[in-house]
């Protein structure tokens, strides 16, 4: 009898404990939600309490963002590539860039105060090559006072995904970029339905009309069937960067550039933006790389999400 009583008591107690456990998760999350939806701004000894859904434009932890580098490195940094001679000088350019990047190490860095950025809000979007390029672009943004606000990496995507979905418009509305990088084409270098691709490219160009952009052609390692020409004709004159002649080191899969390849690619794009592109964008080579990525990274996969 006593055992039964004790067992019943334990069960009752157990029920209340589980109930408490349930509320232990709900109450804190409700409180955080209330704070999130309120206009209250709480601080604790000068530290502002962040909200759950706050768009964290500022880094979670302070990382020094601007640097000075030794004069000899600055000299190297001013390498300009003459795009007309690009295909002849690729090997040389590659070697110079490699040397440049290997030369940058902590010894060469003198830290200064964080630069006050009044530059562009930059968004980059594209296929898997965009996934390799955005972190390098991020360093350029830091160096030049721009802010990389979003990176839309749509793996396995083609121009059709970008043209026939509302993803691009939604991203533009949300992140309000003042400059856009488009990196698309690797998955359609052998496409033969060029008419269809060209009209899709025109749709995309119309979608982003009004916002300065740089349309970067795919860094393909084989001759394409004309996709570069199709994109170039759809983009505004002077806004399309032909990447196919660059001699970029390959990654292990043989399809994408490796990390050095992405750096060289970005360096060439930066030179083009500074010298020849329709929309001029300050793009000095970064003195320090591997800066904290503050941009919203949106990862999509066309195999699972076509967008249209």
């Amino acid at each position: 009898m006593e055992n039964n009583d004790s067992s019943a008591k334990k069960t009752k107690n157990s029920k209340s404990i589980i109930l408490l456990a349930g509320f232990s998760f709900i109450i804190p999350l409700l409180l955080l939600n209330i704070y999130d939806s309120s206009s209250l701004e709480l601080s604790f000894s000068d530290i502002k309490l962040k909200k759950m859904t706050v768009d964290s434009a500022e880094p979670a932890l302070n990382i020094k963002t601007a640097v000075k580098i030794k004069p000899n490195l600055l000299k190297n940094n001013n390498l300009k590539a003459d795009s007309k001679k690009k295909s002849h000088n690729n090997h040389k350019l590659g070697a110079e860039k490699k040397e440049l990047y290997l030369a940058i190490n902590l010894d060469s860095i003198v830290y200064t105060k964080k630069a006050d950025s009044s530059g562009h809000r930059i968004m980059i979007m594209g296929d898997s090559e965009c996934g390799g390029l955005f972190s390098v672009l991020n360093d350029y943004c830091y160096q030049n006072g721009h802010e990389l606000v979003a990176s839309l990496v749509w793996n396995s995507a083609t121009i059709l995904n970008f043209a026939y979905s509302d993803t691009v418009i939604k991203a533009i509305n949300k992140y309000e970029p003042t400059f856009i990088f488009i990196v698309v084409g690797l998955n359609e270098i052998y496409a033969s339905d060029l008419k269809k691709r060209k009209s899709a490219a025109e749709i995309l160009a119309n979608k982003i009309k009004g916002i300065p952009y740089a349309w970067i052609g795919p860094a393909n390692y084989a001759e394409d069937n004309g996709i570069n020409a199709a994109f170039a004709s759809a983009a505004e004159p002077g806004s399309f960067f032909l990447s196919k002649d660059l001699n970029l080191p390959k990654g292990q899969d043989g399809r994408h550039p490796n990390s050095l390849g992405y750096q060289i690619w970005m360096a060439a794009i930066a030179n083009w933006l500074e010298t020849e592109a329709k929309y001029h964008l300050e793009m000095k080579h970064p003195a320090i790389r591997g800066q904290k990525i503050r941009a919203k990274i949106i990862n999509l996969n066309a195999a699972k999400y076509r967008g249209y």
């Binding site: 190490n105 390799g132 750096q263």
Partner: peptide, 11 residues
């Protein structure tokens, strides 16, 4: 991740 994305530039 940052280091492995571009390893050859780090000390």
């Amino acid at each position: 991740t940052i280091l492995h994305a571009t390893p050859n530039g780090f000390s």
